[in-house]
Design a protein around this nucleic acid. Structure first.
Lengths: 373, 373
DNA sequence: TTGTACGCGTTATCAA
DNA sequence: TTGATAACGCGTACAA
């Protein structure tokens, strides 16, 4: 039986139309060796103009549009893809102006590196239906590096996965432990500064509106027994408590104006226990608190002062301008990009802690009845 | 000489630490064939428990964390990556609530498909410095499919690239021509409906605030000679002109409240030519127009009516609720995902035109002095 | 400047 | 249930 048949495999085996041309096909058509054809496309080695022409013509004739990225990335060992891992639903993440800015910086930083950003979700809760169907996790995506974004303990698992795979990884706003470069803020210090500002204005009774304390948090007061697994939340809260040790804290379910509004209503509900200052852990929350204050018939800042955090532009808050800590969000993204770039080239990458800038707006003023006015 | 030496290749040949273990290493360690080891990880074929144990143990011992995605994707011919191509800077794109929602739907739809989203920018202007350094374009990224988002003619080039590569492609809000499935809205009809609403209220003098007419547009009035390369802009404008043929149109430089504000100031500047209704091509623009009206001492809707487009929640616009056309943004994303999914499985995918829903808010009312009140 | 030879790490197929 | 074999499509020493 051997030796009998034609070699029509290619035509018969592949169902639709003809097989895509490969670089070998091009080379054959052009009458050169595959390696020469390869070089024409990569430009790694000088090629005579005549040869290049022939190869390019052959490619055009065959409809060959360049090396298959899959094969190329196997060969070179690099895919040109940087994974960005979020904890939340992607849509949620992009609702956050700070994350948006970060992505911006990140994209800037990895672009020149020849890499693109692959959006990834953190591990689905194990066993869930979603986990079955889930897309390419850290495990299955062809990543050259990964940037973990977020704060919660859930990151741990992703972190292990990615470290086990031996690809460079950087964490933004989260504690990765050990040897993983970390990009974050002086959250505690910045929050302390805002709180001190309030104290200097004579405020003695403050309340805190925090970001979620963990991923699946529903809004509510934080008790002594509430475990705070989100680093940002914990650190900023610590900064506030450094100055107002007794301040009650209400945790929102997310960084949204509506959440701030809900928290504000709760906080302003009892006239007897009403604070003269509210420390919100994000500008959006602060905007909601301001609105809640108005709703409760309180003037800002005459009756109650409000501070934010982030330094983003909050639409629709005019004429208010939040007193806030401005964080360099885009710079954080850029730094993360630079860090993975360094690691991909084998250079070490250091952790960076960025500093916030205090910005006084018109939402803070002397405490009512205080001598500070 | 053969038969003499140890087999220490692995230790000596590869510079840093030891080479990563491959599935063959694992197979050898476990005493099974590579194909069996492969099957253990892919689960494509039943394997005896004993064998599985041995392989898994061997993997653990060697620190093997699963098949290399690059090799796997070469072999299977699929990478599990769907490219999402934007025209603008990524950060810009995510500032747009509509795009954010779309991404959301898209992520939903491709997830179950086992795919992730790779963020890609449209081609840099050829010859620019950026183009040199640019990351993985459509040409170099290992995509299984691509979703083109946006509207301008620039998409053409991306489209050619991607079609030449023979990968499935879907276009959202753009004219791809021919055989490329298209996901879009009944922009013209929806806009016409809003305009008709105004006309029914007695308005006769309307102005339009449009989205950018092309990618690099600076804000300004649209003249007879202004070429509009952005489909959405053109279609919505056509819908408005269907009802108000003489309406002047001012094109903003982007879909932002601030842009709407600037446009509104321009439109309300001359008291003699002041319209009684402003048709904005997005809710954000409309919000800005409302603000400009307030600024000019005009009451909304008593002195001037304003319509939006999109049906998003505009923060800070309370107590106004825009009269607008609500578009199913997330559904658009989901449909795009479904379409690429279908094409990846060889099934045909049809274009889909979604329909907007008219929603009356409190920013439109009878024309001043009209009988319609 | 061009060609030869080899392997990157998998997985599909088929036979045992 | 397991194993042998053969690609997948390319890049790159190295030799010519």
């Amino acid at each position: 039986m051997p030796g009998t048949g034609y070699d029509q495999d290619d035509m018969s085996r592949h169902d639709p139309g003809t097989r895509r041309a490969t670089i070998s096909d091009v080379a054959r058509e052009a009458g050169v060796s595959p390696s020469t054809a390869s070089v024409v496309f990569s430009g790694k080695t000088p090629v005579s103009d005549a040869t290049r022409r022939r190869v390019l013509d052959a490619a055009a004739a065959l409809g060959y549009t360049g090396p298959d990225p899959r094969a190329a990335s196997l060969r070179r060992g690099r895919s040109g893809i940087v994974g960005v891992v979020f904890e939340e639903h992607l849509g949620q993440a992009f609702l956050d102006p700070v994350k948006t800015l970060m992505m911006d910086g990140l994209a800037d930083a990895v672009g020149p590196l020849g890499a693109g950003l692959l959006l990834l979700r953190d591990h689905e809760p194990a066993g869930s239906d979603a986990a079955q169907a889930a897309g390419p996790s850290l495990t299955t995506a062809p990543l050259d590096a990964a940037v973990l974004i977020g704060c919660s303990g859930m990151l741990r698992e992703s972190l292990e996965t990615v470290k086990a795979r031996g690809i460079p990884v950087v964490v933004i706003e989260g504690d990765a432990g050990g040897d993983v470069p970390r990009i974050d803020l002086d959250n505690r210090e910045a929050q302390r500064q805002l709180a001190s500002h309030l104290r200097a204005l004579g405020h003695r009774r403050a309340a805190v509106v925090t970001l979620p304390v963990r991923v699946d948090w529903e809004r509510g007061w934080i008790g002594d027994d509430t475990a705070i697994t989100v680093d940002v939340t914990r650190d900023r809260l610590a900064g506030a408590l450094d100055v107002f040790p007794d301040a009650p804290a209400y945790a929102a379910a997310g960084s949204f104006i509506d959440e701030g509004l809900a928290a504000g209503r709760e906080i302003f509900a009892d006239p007897d226990r009403r604070p003269t200052a509210v420390i919100a852990q994000s500008d959006l929350l602060a905007a909601g608190v301001v609105r809640a204050a108005e709703e409760a018939g309180l003037r800002v800042p005459e009756d109650v002062s409000v501070t934010g955090f982030d330094g983003i532009v909050v639409d629709g808050l005019a004429p208010y301008e939040l007193t806030t800590a401005v964080q360099p969000a885009a710079d954080k993204g850029r730094a993360a990009g630079a860090a993975v770039a360094a690691m991909m080239e084998g250079r070490p990458a250091a952790s960076i802690r960025f500093t916030c800038t205090f910005r006084e707006g018109n939402t803070t003023g002397p405490a009512p009845g205080s001598a500070a006015r």
